[in-house]
């Protein structure tokens, strides 16, 4: 009996290590969970909520599975001071804004012009930008599908993970595509639209009717 028990325990521990080791590699990403720093800069609502602070552009999202649209007063290029937690994957940065910390810091400034790069078609997985950039790891794939659907539906900017990068998705009028894209969360699709560049960010002004499942 003793041998049976020792064998079972050893087998269990070995299997645990094997399963833990075999997991699909995790993306190198970062989320400073619970650490809020002060950021000063110019915030913009469209095409996706973002701000420029210290020369860097940060996407802005709300807490949990929420976007930042409700926090930021509409208007272009508003100087603000806010507290945020840094989320980072590759060269793309995002801040989870602490509710109530958003303060106007001056009169309207100058917005950065978005540069159009023509009409493009992308094939890849529909993800929510917040989890993908590091709040969850993995923040993509089948196991994460329902979470991505919840985040997109809650106002986190939808995006397509294609060609190794992240392309944010908005409607032709820069309206968020929460309702249209949440049913496609976690799935591979092809989508077409006008690609624009805003600093380091790539944004596709897509016609939701152009989306097809692969």
């Amino acid at each position: 009996m003793r041998t049976t028990v020792v064998c079972l325990l050893g087998f269990g521990a070995l299997l645990a290590i094997l399963l833990a080791a075999g997991q699909r590699p995790f993306a190198p990403s970062k989320f400073e969970f619970g650490v809020f720093r002060i950021y000063n800069g110019i915030a913009e609502q469209t095409p996706v909520p973002s701000m420029i602070s210290g020369g860097e552009r940060y996407l802005l999202v709300g807490p949990g599975k929420r976007g930042a649209t409700e926090m930021a007063p509409p208007g272009r290029a508003l100087p603000v001071e806010l507290q945020g937690s840094l989320i980072e994957r590759g060269s793309t940065r995002m801040l989870e804004v602490l509710p109530g910390s958003w303060k106007p810091a001056g009169p309207e400034g100058r917005s950065t012009p978005a540069v159009s790069e023509g009409v493009h078609t992308f094939t890849g997985e529909i993800v929510d930008s917040k989890c993908y950039l590091g709040v969850m790891n993995p923040g993509e794939g089948k196991v994460h599908r329902q979470c991505a659907a919840r985040c997109i539906s809650g106002g986190v900017p939808a995006a397509i993970a294609a060609n190794g990068g992240l392309i944010l998705l908005t409607g032709p009028d820069d309206r968020p595509l929460s309702r249209e894209l949440s049913p496609y969360a976690g799935e591979r699709v092809t989508i077409r639209g006008e690609l624009i560049r805003l600093g380091q960010l790539q944004i596709l002004r897509a016609d939701p009717a152009s989306i097809t499942r692969e």
Binding site: G12, A13, A16, L19, A21, Q23
Partner: peptide, 29 residues
């Protein structure tokens, strides 16, 4: 046995995949 399994899974997971979050390791373990 249960604690040994969970400890082996989370510790091995955290060492071999430093980018994995603890929530994911717990859910999977």
């Amino acid at each position: 046995g249960v604690l040994l399994y969970l400890a082996a899974f989370t510790v091995a997971g955290a060492l071999l995949h430093p980018a994995a979050t603890i929530e994911t390791l717990l859910i999977r373990g």
